[in-house]
C-alpha cells in the first residue's frame, strides 16, 4: 500500500459518507411522499395511467407488478436488438443482433446485471444503446430500490396488509432520485471529456504506421485455415484508425449510479471516451457506491431509528475497507516472475509500480484496485482495468467480493435487501445462542422468515457452483476457455459468480458470446434476480402483517458494535464457506504456482 492509496481511500470514504447521509434522508422523504411539489407533478401521471396513488398493494400484487414491468422491459430490449438494422439512429449500419446474444443482453439489462457478451461499439446502434439499454439502466435500478423500500416498510409498519404501491414507488424513485442524479453526473463527465454525440464514427490518421497480422479471408468470406486447422495469417499495416463515438456520457452516468455497469464501449471505463481523466474516474467510482450507501440511511430514517442505518453502513464499510486494502496490497506486490527479467516494479515518482498488466497508466494500482473492489462489491460490473490480468490473489478479491452475495453496499436496493436478509439470519443465530425468540426491529423472526431467508441465500450459490460445474464438464463450456488450468477455471467461476449475483463484470479470457454461455448465463442472471427477489417480497409482506414488539431488557440491540460484528461474521461465514473449495481450485492454486 502506498501513501497515495491510503489518501485515496480516506478521501473516498469521507466524500462518500458526506454525500450518502443527506441523499439517504432525501430518498426516504421521496419514498414517503413528503414533498408537496413532487406529489403535484406526479398526480397527472397517475391519472393518465389510471393508477390509484393511495391504493396499497399486498406483497404478491406488488411482486407481480414488478415482474410484469420487467417482463415488458425484457421484450422491448430484445426487439430493439433484433430489429436495429431497420430502425433509426444507426449511422454505422450495424446488423441485427443474434437471437442468443439478444436474449442474454435483454435478461442482463432487465436484471440489473449488465453482463455484456458483445462489444458495444461494434454491435449496438445508438438507438439500442439509448432506448433499450439506457432505459433499462434506469428501470432495473428503480426495481431494486422499490423492493428494498417494500422490505423496509415491512419492518416499519405493523399489522398492515400492504407494502406500498409498486407503480407509485417506481415513478418516484425514477423521477426524483435517478434522473436528477444521472443528469448531474452526466454533465460532470461531459465537462471532463467523456463524449456525448450522435455523430458517426471518425476515421483519423494515426501518428505512426502500425504493422500487424490478420487472418486471410477466402472467397466464401470465412478465414482460411491451414492443414492443422489454424488460421492463415498475412502481414498488413495501416495508418488509419476508426474512433467510435456516441451518446456515452448520459449512459455512463446511470450505468454507475444504478450499479448497472454495462459499458458503452467494449472496454468499459478503461476507454478514454468513457472515462477521460482521474477526476472522471473519481466521479464514476464514487457514483458506483453512492446510492447503495445512501439507502442504509434511508433504512434508518424509514424505520424511525437512524442508528440502525449507521450499523448496517458500518458493517458494509468495514468489509469494503478490508477487501479494498487487500486488492491494493496484492496488486502493489507485483508479479514475482517479472522480477528476474529485470522489470522494475517498485513505486516511484514516475511510475505506479506493482502489477500494471491490464491497468491504465492514467490510473495506476490504487485507482484501479479501488474501482475493482467497488464495482464487484457494489454489483456494478463496470471496469477501468482488466481483472483477468490481476495477480491470483488480487483477482480473487473481486471474485470473492461478488461471491459474498453483493451485500457489501451491493446493487442499488438489492444490496441492502440482501444485507437485511443476512441481518435476519444474524439475529436468528444470536437467538439460538441466548435461547430467546429472535426479533429484529421489533418484529418476531419466525419459521416463515427463516425459510424465505434460507431460500434467498441458497439459490445464488446453487446457480454459481452448479453452472460452473456444468460448464467445465461439457465440451461447449470448455471450448472457449482461453487459459487452460487453474486460471481458466477461475474465468468460468467468475462468469457464473458475476451472472448469478447480477454483477456483470467479466474476468475476460473466456469467450462467452456463444449459444451455450449466452443461454446458461442468461438463466443464472434471471434466477439470480427473481428467485431472490420473490422470497424477499414474501418476507416484506409477512413482516408488515406482524405486530410490533415492545423493546425490553431482553431485546438484543441491533445498532451497536456487537451486532455489527455479528453481521459481518454471518456474511463472511455464510458467504465465504460456500465458495472455499471452488476458490481453492482456482485463484489459490494459481497463487501457489506463481509464488512457488
Amino acid at each position: 500500500m502506498t501513501a497515495h492509496a491510503w489518501m485515496l481511500l480516506a478521501v473516498y470514504g469521507i466524500v462518500l459518507t458526506m454525500l450518502s447521509v443527506p441523499l439517504g434522508r432525501f430518498i426516504a422523504g421521496v419514498m414517503e411522499g413528503r414533498f408537496g411539489f413532487a406529489r403535484r407533478v406526479e398526480a397527472p401521471l397517475y391519472r393518465l395511467c389510471g393508477v390509484g396513488a393511495d391504493a396499497e398493494m399486498g406483497w404478491l400484487q406488488y411482486t407481480l407488478a414488478i415482474m410484469v414491468f420487467n417482463g415488458i422491459g425484457f421484450l422491448a430490449v430484445y426487439a430493439l436488438q433484433r430489429l436495429q438494422l431497420w430502425l433509426p439512429l444507426n449511422p454505422q449500419g450495424l446488423a441485427n443482433v443474434s437471437p442468443d446474444s439478444s436474449l442474454n443482453t435483454a435478461i442482463s439489462f432487465m436484471t440489473n446485471t449488465n453482463w455484456q457478451g458483445y462489444g458495444g461499439e461494434t454491435t449496438m446502434s445508438y438507438l439500442t444503446q439509448m432506448l433499450g439499454l439506457g432505459v433499462q439502466n434506469f428501470l432495473s435500478a428503480a426495481t431494486g430500490i422499490v423492493v428494498v423500500i417494500a422490505l423496509i416498510r415491512g419492518f416499519a409498519r405493523h399489522s398492515a396488509a400492504g407494502v406500498g404501491n409498486a407503480w407509485v414507488d417506481l415513478t418516484r424513485v425514477t423521477l426524483w432520485v435517478l434522473l436528477p442524479l444521472a443528469f448531474v453526473v452526466a454533465l460532470l463527465l461531459v465537462q471532463q471529456g467523456v463524449v456525448q454525440t450522435f455523430e458517426p464514427y471518425k476515421e483519423v490518421q494515426t501518428l505512426e504506421t502500425v504493422k500487424y497480422q490478420e487472418p486471410k479471408i477466402g472467397p466464401d468470406g470465412q478465414p482460411l485455415k491451414d492443414a492443422k486447422g489454424d488460421p492463415v495469417m498475412k502481414d498488413t499495416s495501416t495508418d488509419r484508425q476508426t474512433l467510435a463515438m456516441g451518446p456515452a456520457a448520459s449512459q455512463i452516468a446511470i450505468k454507475q449510479l444504478g450499479t448497472n455497469g454495462g459499458g458503452f464501449f467494449n472496454v468499459n471505463s478503461a476507454h478514454p471516451y468513457e472515462n477521460a481523466t482521474p477526476w472522471s474516474n473519481f466521479v464514476e467510482v464514487l457514483s458506483i457506491v453512492l446510492i447503495p450507501a445512501a439507502l442504509c440511511f434511508t433504512f434508518g430514517h424509514m424505520v424511525g431509528d437512524r442508528r440502525q442505518g449507521w450499523a448496517v453502513f458500518a458493517a458494509m464499510g468495514l468489509m469494503f475497507l478490508v477487501l479494498t486494502v487487500g486488492a491494493m496490497s496484492f496488486e502493489q506486490q507485483g508479479n514475482p516472475q517479472l522480477a528476474p527479467l529485470g522489470v522494475d516494479q517498485a513505486e516511484r515518482a514516475a511510475q505506479a509500480g506493482g502489477n500494471m498488466e491490464g491497468k491504465e497508466a492514467r490510473y495506476g494500482i490504487a485507482d484501479s484496485a479501488l474501482w475493482a473492489s467497488a464495482t464487484t462489491l457494489a454489483s456494478n460490473g463496470s471496469v477501468n482495468s482488466m481483472h483477468d490480468s490481476y495477480t491470483p490473489l488480487g483477482g480473487m478479491i473481486p471474485l470473492l467480493s461478488i461471491q459474498l452475495g453483493e451485500v457489501i453496499f451491493g446493487g442499488v436496493g438489492s444490496g441492502l435487501y440482501g444485507m437485511l436478509v443476512f441481518a435476519i439470519i444474524a439475529v436468528f443465530i444470536a437467538g439460538l445462542m441466548i435461547g430467546r425468540t429472535p426479533e429484529y426491529l421489533g418484529k418476531k423472526i419466525e419459521a416463515y422468515e427463516m425459510k424465505m431467508s434460507s431460500l434467498a441465500i441458497l439459490i445464488v450459490p446453487l446457480l454459481v457452483l452448479g453452472g460452473t460445474a456444468i460448464a467445465v464438464m461439457v465440451d461447449a463450456g470448455r471450448a472457449t476457455i482461453a487459459n487452460p488450468g487453474a486460471h481458466g477455471f477461475s474465468e468460468v467461476l467468475y462468469a457464473f459468480s458475476s451472472a448469478g449475483n447480477n454483477n456483470g463484470s467479466a474476468f475476460a479470457g473466456l469467450g462467452a458470446n456463444t449459444p451455450f454461455y449466452n443461454t446458461m448465463l442468461g438463466i443464472a442472471m434471471w434466477l439470480g434476480r427473481f428467485a431472490v427477489l420473490i422470497p424477499v417480497m414474501a418476507m416484506a409482506g409477512s413482516l408488515a402483517a406482524k405486530k410490533r414488539l415492545a423493546v425490553t431488557s431482553g431485546t438484543m440491540p441491533t445498532h451497536g458494535p456487537l451486532f455489527v460484528l455479528l453481521l459481518i461474521g454471518t456474511v463472511l461465514l455464510v458467504g465465504l464457506l460456500n465458495y472455499v473449495p471452488a476458490l481453492a481450485l482456482g485463484p489459490v492454486v494459481e497463487h501457489l504456482v506463481l509464488w512457488k
Partner: peptide, 30 residues
Amino acid sequence: MTWMYALGSVVAVGLLIYLVAALLAPEKFS
C-alpha cells in the same frame, strides 16, 4: 459425459429436492 457424471448429477439433484422439501416443510420429516 460419462455414466459417472450422469449418476453424480442424479444424486445431486435428488439431494437438492430432498433438502428444499425439508427446508419448506420440516414437520413432514420429523
